[in-house]
Design a protein around this nucleic acid. Structure first.
Lengths: 348, 348
DNA sequence: AGAATGTGAGCAACCGTTTTCCTGAGCCGA
DNA sequence: TCGGCTCAGGAAAACGGTTGCTCACATTCT
């Protein structure tokens, strides 16, 4: 007897995926009862529940999420918008978020805007159409960004900004602690006896460079010191800049005994320049980087002491904040800061 | 008059998001007609259609995807499983895929297994529950991997393997052309007059290292040559190995005039070692890398000529294959190869 | 013994769209 | 003027679950 539909003939296996009706039929109960048996809601004889559970097992039944979402209005999905590619910075954030969300039954919809406003609107509309439960926005820079906007209905979906905070203080943002990071770096250098510290970092129009520089100088001042060259060296986030800057610093302040660099690339450039000048690291001059970008920090000679921003933790905290906003609707708006971590290697 | 529901009182704005019923009511047609007006199906007076369209506009209506998916069985979603973190290799693949898919109305569900089989099963089940239209699996290595399995119903969902092919030849896989890449590198070196080529690469248990080495040697042979040291130098994918290997090679075969390296890290290590020995690149010895990992290739002194695997293209082709498999069900199983690209910089 | 209470399970409405019929009106030719 | 067309638009049945309500029956209390 060939039966292609799941219709009423008892004993005929339902074609395709089993639906709740099939389970109910096999267990000899109604669809509603089967549903209750699965959800745990409603009271029923344990034996009945077990029959349903057995039927589920036998048929390999899995509920259709679209049906559930349609009814409950929840999609168990969050959008993850990366505004600037998926690079070295957003990847750990993204993984941290995915980790925290995936632990529940929430999945992540990936949207990459490539920094394009049109694309952002497109993705945003898409996410709203899919009725996502929330959105995480992450960029690769720590500079604040304007909040999501332009799509009707957005106000009803919680949004958390990770790494790049929203310019609107009423939004929820999770950012790295540049102040603490600078403090860790400076205090580490001071604790190893250095007093003539130079600071070489990226372009001044990057908030990360400005903030770290400001706090580095602040912490030096607090210890009664100042940058060995009397100023901060802004430039690029590159090795080449690190090499050039190292030469410039040593020309200006030959007694410099430590470099605090704005990222690991600069730090690597500095160590290379020092080595080529015959200066030994860390005996003569200590070098500390920032980012703990392993391929840079470990390949450097010697391997770099550096500051780790705990990017995955930022992603995780952002996800947790989002979950709170979704579930309890009592999220704590404002800026949340994730502390950095000092990773000591051989360059200090 | 307070009305909280969208119920029948004409003139009362529907609460929350507009549904098709609201549109229909505003346009003075039935729900079914409104649906037809939007989908373009069915015949109707242009003026009626326009009334519906106006109502859609006025209400900012957007269809509920869950309802659509429930009915049509399509979720307009594909799963993207990365098996080993989201690293340097899977990221471009992922972006390429997202790009190709997002152009349509398909969104990407991100799943990271961290190389854990349990997690893979978990995500797989999740994707099936969400009734994804297809799955792309990508790893960070080019070694073949076992096909997805273990979840009932999987056979009805098209799967494409990107970067890491499936061990099952009946599956659809999109991989890089290691043979062509090796050929590009060797021919480039030969075309610039080099004849004593050394090959330094990663661990022999990596397919990428083995394949590139085999084909490199093959192409040298085809030109009547052989590796300058008489063998391939397997090691690690690191700069430190590149430096050590460079020394070893020059000790064995001082007349070596070119290095073909298995990746850019090794190539960078080689150039560093050469520079420190006072050997000038490319005048005395040419160096070519592999991967076109910009932070390595560009930071190297001199910047590296290298082979670009066109990873984004691999992702794009995988997505396209998946779309074909989804739509036409006439995908072409087997292994698809994406050609590499020679990027000439100053090290050759 | 009859009523009050409790409990297990089914019925049916509902979530928001799509799609398949089906009706009724208008138009044509005979 | 009437039968058969075409065509616009409506009614309703899916899609696959969830859930409030109802009902029948069993138990216990007065």
């Amino acid at each position: 007897m060939l039966v292609t539909s799941a219709a009423g003939v008892p004993g005929s296996p339902p074609a395709g995926r089993a639906k709740l009706a099939d389970v109910a039929a096999l267990a000899g109960v109604s669809v509603g009862t089967a549903s209750k048996a699965l959800s745990g809601a409603g009271r029923m004889r344990p034996e009945t529940r077990q029959r349903v559970l057995d039927a589920v097992e036998a048929l390999g039944f899995r509920p259709n999420q679209h049906a559930q979402s349609l009814h409950t209005g929840r999609s168990w999905t969050v959008g993850l918008m990366t505004t600037d590619g998926i690079g070295r910075f957003s990847t750990p954030v993204l993984l941290g978020a995915e980790d925290a969300l995936g632990a529940g039954k929430i999945s992540v919809l990936l949207c990459d805007t490539r920094g394009d406003a049109i694309r952002e609107q497109h993705h945003l509309r898409n996410l709203m159409d899919r009725r996502v439960d929330g959105i995480i926005v992450t960029g690769r820079r720590t500079d604040p960004r304007p909040p999501l906007t332009g799509i009707t209905g957005l106000e009803s979906v919680p949004v958390v900004y990770a790494l790049s905070p929203s310019t609107d203080a009423a939004d929820t943002s999770v950012v790295t602690d540049d102040r603490g990071g600078a403090q860790l770096a400076v205090e580490h250098l001071l604790s190893t006896g250095r007093t003539r510290v130079a600071h070489v970092t990226g372009p001044e129009h990057h908030a990360a460079a400005r903030d770290r520089a400001r706090h580095a100088v602040g912490h030096l001042c607090a210890a009664g010191l100042s940058p060995s060259t009397g100023r901060v060296h802004f430039g690029e986030w590159s090795e080449a800049w690190g090499r050039r800057a190292a030469d410039a610093v040593l020309r200006t302040a030959p007694d410099t005994d430590a470099f605090f660099c704005g990222n690991d690339q600069i730090a690597r450039g500095v160590t290379d320049a020092l080595r080529e000048r015959g200066v030994s690291v860390p005996e003569d001059i200590a070098v500390i980087g920032y980012d703990n970008w392993d391929t840079m920090a470990l390949a450097s000679r010697p391997p770099l002491t550096t500051i780790d921003m705990n990017l995955a933790e930022i992603g995780r905290v952002a996800a947790l904040q989002l979950l709170r906003a979704i579930d309890d609707a009592d999220a704590t708006p404002g800026v949340h800061t994730v502390p950095c971590r000092l990773v000591v290697r051989e360059s200090t």
